[in-house]
């Protein structure tokens, strides 16, 4: 409890310090370059100077934090990836050569590709279908809330939930995991699902899909509702069937939103770490890049060179989406 008190006090101190900084810096600026009460060229000169400085006062703390926590690390990671485990001696590209020769890394790349192919596609598709279905029924909002709920659950919490679903007991004894219970009920033999090489990847993906479908559903549902009703009515008059309307009229009109959902989930997949750590910690051929990177960060006291090299690979995979996002955003704010 004293610890929580400490947290709250620091928090208030932090907020007050922020408020004080903004107040004081603005007050100081107005003191140094006063315009109030003055007239003529001096006032207008001061006004010009202070309005050129003020935006930077407003942005300074945020820019500083962004620089330290996100911009600098990008460059530092690239630098470290070219150095040895301690980060002192330059080793050129040898971390990368090691990496591409390493079986575990290749396994991770393969698994990440699987994740990238499956998770965004399935989540987006299910989200779209659920959004379309729930819009037609009276209890649709309740259904949506329930499907959206896993968004609030941590990856670790979700891992426990699903580990319980996949729980395995030796054949003959009563299964308490619902999946094996169903399998045995229908006459199959129980399996330890998360240790089945290759297929276990899919059992892990289910968890992320379970979490992310709600996200896709919410965004796509809003997009579907934004479609002008008239276009659907026109299609009905033109004699299109329900499915035709969905795939030929509705989906094309929300193509942009689908792309947004897809890329958002893709980014998330590239960073997926907690689920694998909690479920298998990369055993049984389920390793992924983010977990491998974490592993090397601490393995044997920490190999910063190799860890950074893996981080750089993740970054490189993200860059195309980053560029696409920036282009979309600048087009949107271009006129403003």
């Amino acid at each position: 409890m004293p610890q929580l008190l400490f947290a709250i006090v620091t928090m208030m101190a932090g907020v007050l310090a922020c408020a004080f900084y903004f107040l004081a810096s603005n007050w100081l600026l107005d003191r140094i370059f006063p315009s109030q009460g003055l007239s003529g060229p001096k006032a207008s000169r001061n006004l010009r100077i202070s309005s050129a400085i003020r935006p930077w006062l407003f942005m300074l703390p945020a820019l500083l934090a962004l620089a330290v926590y996100l911009v600098y690390p990008v460059f530092e990671s690239v630098r470290l990836s070219l150095h040895d485990r301690s980060g002192r001696d330059f080793v050129g590209l040898s971390n990368f050569f090691w990496m591409f020769g390493d079986g575990e890394f290749r396994q991770s790349i393969f698994n990440n590709c699987l994740w990238l192919l499956v998770v965004p596609a399935v989540s987006t598709f299910l989200g779209l279908v659920i959004a379309a279905l729930t819009d037609r029924i009276w209890w649709g909002n309740i259904a949506k809330t329930l499907i959206f709920t896993p968004m609030a659950i941590s990856f670790v919490g979700a891992a426990v939930i699903w580990k319980f679903v996949y729980d395995y007991r030796a054949e003959g004894s009563e299964q308490i995991g619902i999946l094996n219970a169903l399998v045995t009920y229908f006459g199959g033999a129980p399996e330890a699902w998360i240790t089945l090489p290759f297929w276990n990847n899919f059992f892990l993906m289910v968890i992320l899909i379970w979490i992310q479908t709600g996200f896709a559903m919410v965004i796509l549902s809003a997009a579907l509702r934004g479609i002008p009703e008239e276009t659907l009515e026109a299609a009905v008059i033109d004699g299109a069937s329900g499915l035709q309307i969905f795939f030929k009229i509705m989906v094309p009109q929300i193509r942009g939103t689908i792309a947004v959902v897809w890329t958002n989930i893709t980014i998330l997949v590239l960073k997926v770490f907690d689920i694998v750590l909690a479920m298998t910690n990369g055993q049984w051929q389920t390793q992924v890049l983010a977990n491998l990177m974490f592993d090397w960060m601490f393995r044997g006291g920490g190999d910063f060179g190799r860890g950074a090299a893996i981080a750089v690979v993740i970054m490189v995979l993200v860059v195309p989406i980053m560029i696409w996002n920036i282009r979309n955003a600048t087009r949107e704010t271009g006129g403003h």
Binding site: S35, Q36, P41, A43, S44, L47
Partner: peptide, 11 residues
Amino acid sequence: GERVNDVPPSQ
């Protein structure tokens, strides 16, 4: 009669 080009709106 006063030039107000550079005077802020409120003044």
